[in-house]
Computed example of a mutant assay.
Amino acid sequence: MKKVLKRAAVVSVAGLMAMGLAACSGEAAASNTSGKPSTVYFGVSAAETGQYAQYGQQFKEAFDLAVDQVNAKGGINGHPVALKYEDSQSDPKQSVPVAQKFVGDSSVILVFGDYSSAASIPASPIYTAGKLLQYGFNNSNPDFTAKGTKYQWSTSITTSATYKWTADYIKKQGVKSVGVTYLNTSDWGIPAYQAFEDEAKKIGLKITDAEGVLDTSDDYKPSLIKAVKGNPQAFVHIGYGPDSAKIVTQLRSIGYNGTFYGGQDEESFDGTSAATGSIIGSEFVETSTDPEVKSFVAAFKKKYPSETDVTSFEAGAYDALNVAVAAAKKGGITREGILKGFGEIKDVPSVVYGKITFDPSTRRVASPHLTPTILKDGKWVVYNG
């Protein structure tokens, strides 16, 4: 069960553990007044309270695990790593003042976040003005980087790439028609649907009907009845886990039994009985036999024994911390140095992609890939059907 964070700005204690390590010979460690190597701080702008607090908790658990591991191996050239958390509620009304606070804190050399592009993009001008790298590792809206500056970077595959892949995959499965619902939001749902629609037209996948919906709704039946009136072979929902859980449940309740393409690897959707058999393209698969993935999953469950699932949200945050550390090692432990490092790092080990190298023109992962997965017994597994 995912827990909700307490409201507060928190400094990760893992980063403050004494390491007793000398600086690596390649870079002399800066020292504080005590003579010990100074701590390197990363900020985290995330939802600790509010409707997205579940995701903030998932990020925090993965961040803290990664910090433990980094510091156990000597930190960043002898400097321990720590995190400063601020509760944005993933709301632009909060993410902007959080950005102002981090920019004003000279000890912070990079900020992770926010959970949603809708919260990250309004804060971007603040980070740019402060010359502070904003690492929106979960931000799939292409505009986060495309309309951002050299200070906005992301390891998330874009929504346009995801839903182009979805349309192509469905067509390859022999499906000729789909009904669609999508979140009627200008920052994410509508652009994602447009990418899907454009690709569907290009490849000859018929959309019998498409209905815009809101994630705050509880009754989707009127929209679903319209969406399946044309008897589509399959159904696509472009949205998040919680709304997908309600959509698929109500879709089955009105008698539609075609394959459901949608959902997320998160608690509310994975635990929905009607969601069994759903198919999505995944960046991360917990059940992968890859040694790096198996090691990460084992370490995560050892640190958090009450957590039964490890999802792409934890994996993405874990990767993000390690990418930031690699960049600081490469470029230096200043705002200018870590920015330089992001442009230079290559083949950083990743539990999501295998290895991460950025495309400097997009400031996103070069050649990201998705794996078809199907939900079985509450777990997403690789689908070869």
Rank of each mutant, 00 (worst) to 15 (best):
T39D: 00
F269G: 11
V382A: 08
T185W: 04
T181L: 14
V44H: 08
Q69A: 02
F300K: 01
G78E: 08
P232L: 11
K376W: 01
A22C: 01
E314M: 07
G385T: 03
T259G: 08
L21F: 02
Y304N: 10
T334A: 04
T162K: 15
K246A: 06
K73A: 15
P191G: 12
L224M: 12
K246V: 12
I190H: 02
K73I: 00
E197T: 09
K303T: 05
A200F: 07
D219I: 00
K73L: 11
A200R: 04
K303C: 02
F358M: 04
K294D: 05
G331Q: 02
L65I: 09
S88E: 10
Q58S: 11
Q69P: 03
A22G: 13
S361H: 06
P122W: 01
L214R: 13
Y127N: 01
S124A: 15
Y318H: 11
G15K: 00
Y240V: 12
A28S: 12
K202N: 07
A161P: 04
A22W: 13
A119M: 05
T155I: 15
S95C: 02
D209L: 03
A245G: 14
K3S: 11
V382T: 15
V285S: 00
S177P: 05
G174Y: 10
S160W: 00
S244C: 03
K6M: 06
F102L: 05
K340C: 00
I76Y: 07
D187P: 00
Y383F: 13
A23T: 12
I207G: 10
W188P: 03
K376R: 14
D359S: 01
A8Y: 10
I254Q: 01
D319F: 08
